[in-house]
Design a protein around this nucleic acid. Structure first.
Length: 196
DNA sequence: CTACCGATGCGCT
DNA sequence: GCGCATCGGTAGC
């Protein structure tokens, strides 16, 4: 089991995202481990990216060095987590959309709700963030500095498929959603009603 | 299982 | 003020 170093993330987001499929997300102090099954790439040159045509304080983690968390708030109640990619000064990131829970399911269920099925614990970006206890204070956190939140790999080499992103109005024709072929842990695919 | 709809508050224009 | 990289409940098949 090897921890993913910063150089893993120092590539364009659309190259990092497919390589994250099958990797492990670890919250060490919580004892949480999950295998990523669905990730989306975003980069600053295209309209769907939060950093499209602007640079504001909340977006600094995306512009900074790779391997840092960018956690944002959406729809008035949900947090979603990205890991920054590419080179410093260029905003790129990978949205963690779904994962298979491997360890710490009890704590995940404490955070998500007692009646939530295993299948729904981490199926969706806001669900994943909630189960891992991620929020505003985690945005900007370094994920490659030996701290408690990091990525690891265990030799899993899944078949990766790709398609259009989920729920993005300015989706364009980019197929930057990557997911594990045939996995029951992947989130439901819903295209945005006004997607181009 | 799918389809619809309301909740909710922040970041930016 | 507007729009949103969403979710959960309910209704219906």
């Amino acid at each position: 089991m090897y921890v993913l170093e910063r150089e893993f993330f120092a590539r364009p987001a659309d190259q990092v995202a497919p390589d994250l499929i099958g990797k492990l997300l670890v919250s060490r102090d919580d004892g949480l481990v999950a295998r990523l099954v669905e990730v989306e790439a975003y980069q600053q040159g295209e309209p769907a990216c939060h950093a499209y045509g602007r640079r504001t304080p909340r977006l600094e983690p995306l512009y900074g060095p790779p391997g840092h968390a960018y956690v944002y708030f959406t729809y008035g109640m949900h947090w979603c987590a990205n890991v920054s990619a590419g080179t410093e000064g260029v905003a790129e990131g990978c949205l963690l959309r779904a994962a298979e829970p491997l360890s710490g399911l009890t704590l995940m269920r404490d955070r998500r709700g007692a009646r939530v099925s295993d299948r729904d614990l981490l199926r969706g970006p806001a669900r994943l963030a909630q189960a891992f206890g991620l929020g505003r204070e985690d945005s900007g956190r370094d994920l490659c500095d030996g701290g408690p939140l990091y990525f690891a790999e265990d030799g899993c080499r899944p078949e990766v498929r790709r398609g259009p992103r989920v729920g993005v109005a300015a989706a364009g024709d980019l197929e930057w959603r990557f997911f594990m072929d045939g996995s029951p842990w992947v989130s439901l695919y819903k295209r945005h009603p006004r997607a181009s």
